[in-house]
């Protein structure tokens, strides 16, 4: 990803900034120009909660090239405590540690380091909560 695009997405990737529709309250991650629920166009920034649970998951054995070093790795759709959903890796998870319903928290990790001449790319991953 070239750096202008990466830079534009920093509020979402680093700080989980979502857009809350000021008309109907629907929360969009990432923020949108127009509310998918009510069509509203006024939004306030809302930082997402970091805890949630796994809705579904997979273990990737054949990854795209930038993720080769991390394979096999778990990717999940996580539902955060406020109902917002996102897709991310589950860091350091042995495949059998992640199940539907597994509680997780979002952490800050390096997502891609390839190719070597590009900017490093950071963002959110999930980690299984100790329990």
């Amino acid at each position: 990803m070239i750096s202008p695009r990466y830079h534009r997405e920093i509020p979402q990737r680093y700080r989980l900034e979502a857009g809350r529709c000021e008309d109907c309250g629907e929360i969009h991650f990432p923020p949108r120009f127009v509310c998918r629920k009510c069509g509203g166009k006024r939004f306030a920034i809302e930082v997402l909660p970091r805890r949630g649970k796994v809705l579904t998951h997979t273990t990737i054995w054949i990854p795209p090239a930038p993720f080769e070093i991390q394979k096999p790795y778990v990717v999940a759709i996580v539902e955060l405590e406020n109902g917002v959903r996102l897709t991310c890796m589950v860091a350091e998870a042995p495949p059998d540690e992640v199940r539907i319903g597994t509680p997780v928290e979002l952490i800050f990790r390096r997502l891609q380091a390839q190719p070597v001449w590009e900017v490093l790319q950071y963002g959110y991953k999930a980690r299984v909560l100790a329990g």
């Binding site: 800050f108 390096r110 380091a113």
Partner: peptide, 16 residues
Amino acid sequence: PGPDEDTITISVAAGR
């Protein structure tokens, strides 16, 4: 460090 960790991610985790 994991393949997704470096001085920056460690600093963020400790800083948080």
